[in-house]
Design a protein around this nucleic acid. Structure first.
Lengths: 165, 165
DNA sequence: AGCCATTTGGTTGTGCACAATTTAATTGTG
DNA sequence: CACAATTAAATTGTGCACAACCAAATGGCT
């Protein structure tokens, strides 16, 4: 808001400028955090009919697009590790939407495949994107532009985190 | 990714237009979700010295800016309810950063106030925003623009969720 | 063959997010 | 004053995210 172009003091102990930085920072991290949770809330409503949570829906999306995948590949697509996926997939299996079975060729690998019921859900899921887009009130191109910026942001952040800063 | 107009390698037993929607959708929800987690990862690294998690840092930010607040107000600033804040604040209290005490005027209310140690941490926290900004590789104005769009998005999504769709 | 680093999932523990329920204090109304 | 409605926190239960650790399988190496 009132972000006057401060002269960037060299890491001061605690003058007024630092307050300003802390406020601005709040807008950076905050807006993203809040938007993510707000999205989650809308998905919660929209996906209630399907009986899926948002991350479960993401898993099904990947399976619908790529078919059967080992847990590893699934994790790469979604940037999730086994600590998150294992219990999630177990719940999807309990719900009858996927099956998990050890690969015959590599006994370390577990193949995740959608069941008949899981594939059938795809037909009911096609309306989800439209409802979400409607909830945003954004034009499709605007959403695409935003996604593009966020993707660039994610790439940069991942790189920074990997470099330990 | 490669949004080339590929002839859709007939993996799935389903029409074409719906697949397109499901792919686009993935970019909408996905990029935000991924960016949020990527941010979290960078904050994890940067905040490790302070011994704070990202949500704990957000709580301290609000307290530094507004001083003592009841849990309710804190939740309004952060869009978090008592189910999230109660255990979080308990951990902050154990860490010696805040104190919680029942309001004398309204015994239902719990006032959260930063301790001396909590206030002192503010001095060490002023460098956080700069490090985060550096990690994004974005210009400050670009970040501001993005935040603005995300804020608008959040407002729209909240409204939609409240209306049950 | 035997050995060892790597790969792949799973498990455990900590913490956040949120819905639903519970308890206590306050406020409004007759 | 008594009593219903409201409000503020805490609690409980489910699920996601991730670090740290563990076990089994694989593949390369001598």
């Amino acid at each position: 808001m009132t972000t006057t172009p401060s002269p960037l003091p060299a890491t001061p102990p605690l003058p007024d400028a630092s307050d300003e930085w802390l406020r601005v920072d709040q807008q950076i991290c905050f807006s993203l955090h809040a938007a993510s949770r707000a999205f989650n809330g809308v998905y919660r409503v929209v996906l209630k009919d399907l009986g899926l949570t948002y991350p479960q829906y993401l898993v099904m999306l990947v399976l619908w697009e790529h078919g059967t995948l080992p847990v590893k590949k699934l994790g790469e697509h979604l940037r999730l590790d086994s600590g998150t996926l294992s219990p999630l997939l177990k719940r999807l299996e309990t719900a009858g939407l996927v099956r998990r079975e050890r690969s015959a060729r590599d006994e370390r690998s577990v193949e995740v495949r959608p069941t008949e019921e899981g594939e059938a859900m795809r037909r009911r899921a096609v309306e989800v994107p439209r409802r979400i887009l409607a909830a945003t009130g954004f034009e499709i191109d605007e959403v695409r532009a935003l996604s593009s910026r966020l993707h660039a942001l994610t790439t940069a952040l991942d790189k920074a985190a990997a470099e330990g800063a």
